[in-house]
């Protein structure tokens, strides 16, 4: 199979859907010139009535997408960084997400939010490195965080065809990674985790940008004689309980490796699901490697201390193997 980059896979999914469905329009900041690389070529192929550069008005254009979706369009909204979600939070949560329910099931709001530079990259500091997806999941926003180019195309396409607001967190750290991606129509339904590496002694549930690091750790653990299974939830909401819990039932040990904050984070939710549904299989406490609850600091040693890293996961897994 041909190999393309992660950002190209996102771009391909979007362009294929735009060819298929004239209701799909793209709205965001600096997208005609494709600052983030995902919307490259869209203006040239589809013209100015399908792609709209907005003013710096995150709440405004998020709300505009909601109204357009209620009126029959299928807008795609790009946010340059995750912190911009905070500026649009009322429009995302109180409006786009709640309106259908509050209206008694009338209408639908098929907007896809795409964050093609999600999470941390070195040196971005406190306001450009957030990964606040648990806030959205907490309120019921469907979301996915693909970790490979293949998953990026499949999950983004599923989001584009979903009739509800869906958020695709595309980690900045993975934008340049290459991998095999099917050509043509390709969908991965939300709610389906994937076992990225099989193993028997412990489970590493790794999310988004941390999946490649988890696979490397599993390789190192294999050198120690520890067989680690790596499960990638892929879809953040809905969550695939069966695959995650099934793996823990088999291995009896689990580390959750997640790039959101500690308190009420995504790892906390997974830990609760595992405790609830696989308690009798656990042979050791559920462990988490996550961000610390401070803004991401600028200086490399500080940043390294706060973010979940491969070294921290390796240490945690080694300790857990002995527990």
């Amino acid at each position: 199979m041909r190999e393309i980059r992660y950002l190209e896979a996102l771009s391909e999914a979007l362009r294929e859907e735009m060819r298929r469905d004239p209701r799909v329009v793209v709205i965001g900041e600096d997208i005609r010139h494709s600052l983030r690389g995902m919307t490259k070529g869209i203006l040239q192929e589809f013209g100015p009535n399908r792609i709209f550069d907005t003013p710096i008005s995150e709440a405004g254009f998020t709300g505009l997408a909601t109204g357009a979706a209620m009126a029959g369009m299928r807008p795609v909204v790009e946010f340059q960084i995750n912190a911009l979600l905070f500026l649009a939070f009322d429009q995302l949560v109180d409006q786009a997400l709640k309106l259908r329910y509050m209206m008694g099931g009338q209408g639908k709001v098929p907007v896809t939010y795409i964050l093609p530079a999600s999470g941390a990259r070195p040196g971005l500091a406190g306001q450009h490195a957030d990964h606040p997806y648990p806030l959205l999941l907490h309120m019921g926003m469907k979301a996915a965080m693909p970790s490979t180019p293949r998953d990026a195309k499949g999950l983004f396409t599923a989001a584009l065809r979903d009739d509800d607001p869906v958020m695709i967190f595309a980690p900045a750290a993975l934008g340049g990674t290459r991998g095999p991606v099917p050509e043509g129509d390709f969908v991965i339904q939300l709610g389906q985790a994937e076992v990225k590496r099989k193993g028997n002694d412990m489970t590493i549930v790794a999310v988004g940008p941390l999946v490649p690091a988890a696979l490397k750790v599993a390789e190192e653990l294999a050198g120690d004689g520890i067989s680690a299974e790596v499960v990638d939830p892929r879809s953040l909401l809905p969550i695939d309980h069966e695959t995650i819990v099934g793996s823990v039932r088999k291995t009896g040990r689990v580390v959750i490796f997640d790039d959101s904050n500690r308190t009420c984070g995504f790892a906390a939710e997974l830990a609760a699901i595992i405790a609830d549904e696989a308690f009798e299989s656990l042979r050791a406490p559920v462990k988490r490697v996550t961000r610390a609850d401070v803004p991401v600091p600028f200086s490399p040693p500080l940043e390294n201390y706060v973010l979940p890293t491969r070294d921290k996961l390796l240490a945690k897994c080694r300790a857990l193997a002995k527990a």
Binding site: A59, A65, T66, G67, A68, M73, Q91
Partner: peptide, 8 residues
């Protein structure tokens, strides 16, 4: 902004 979206 929702009204703007319907108009859009």
């Amino acid at each position: 902004p929702i009204a703007c979206g319907a108009a859009f």
